[in-house]
């Protein structure tokens, strides 16, 4: 992984659904597939558990990028959760873009339990994108800085 900027290491929060994407991350680990340490995973039962408030909260506390991973459409453990997540995130991302927040800072990806490779490459790519964007300045809360 080549850093565009050697100084800047972005903070990335990844919400992963327990059944597919978290298992996909486990598989990436089992297969020793490297991806940047900037990514920190939070386990949620389903992508539909991700509240837009969590994403804004992450940005508020200093995250530079937030990625949500869930089962592929049609494969949701709870049948329909990722369909709702897809609509919610599409609208939220569109709104952030509308407000001029860099749209590349948010992403939704479908990663199955078998896609360890996809998980690792998605995370690498996302970190690269966010690193290039630099520090999150348009959606930060200065009060949360020490």
């Amino acid at each position: 992984m080549q850093m565009v900027n050697n100084e800047f290491k972005p903070k990335i929060v990844a919400f992963c659904c327990n059944w597919c994407s978290y298992a996909g991350a486990d598989l990436a680990g089992t297969n020793r597939l490297q991806y940047p340490a900037e990514v920190k995973i939070i386990r949620v039962p389903c992508s539909c558990r991700v509240n837009p408030m969590f994403i804004l909260r992450a940005f508020q506390r200093g995250a530079d990028g937030v990625i949500i991973c869930g089962c592929h459409p049609g494969d949701c453990h709870y049948t329909t959760g990722n369909y709702y997540a897809r609509r919610r995130m599409t609208l939220l991302f569109s709104m952030l873009d509308f407000l001029g927040i860099e749209k590349e800072r948010t992403r939704l990806e479908w990663v199955s339990a078998a896609e360890g490779q996809k998980f690792a490459s998605t995370m690498s790519d996302f970190v690269k994108t966010v690193t290039e964007l630099g520090k999150n300045k348009r959606l930060e809360d200065l009060r949360c800085k020490k």
């Binding site: 609208l91 991302f93 992403r107 939704l108």
Partner: peptide, 21 residues
């Protein structure tokens, strides 16, 4: 409401990257 509904072929969120601006 559309947010309590879905279709299997809804647009993916990356549609946001592809349009507008």
């Amino acid at each position: 409401s559309p947010l309590t509904d879905y279709t299997q072929n809804d647009a993916e969120p990356n549609i946001v990257y592809k349009r507008g601006g």
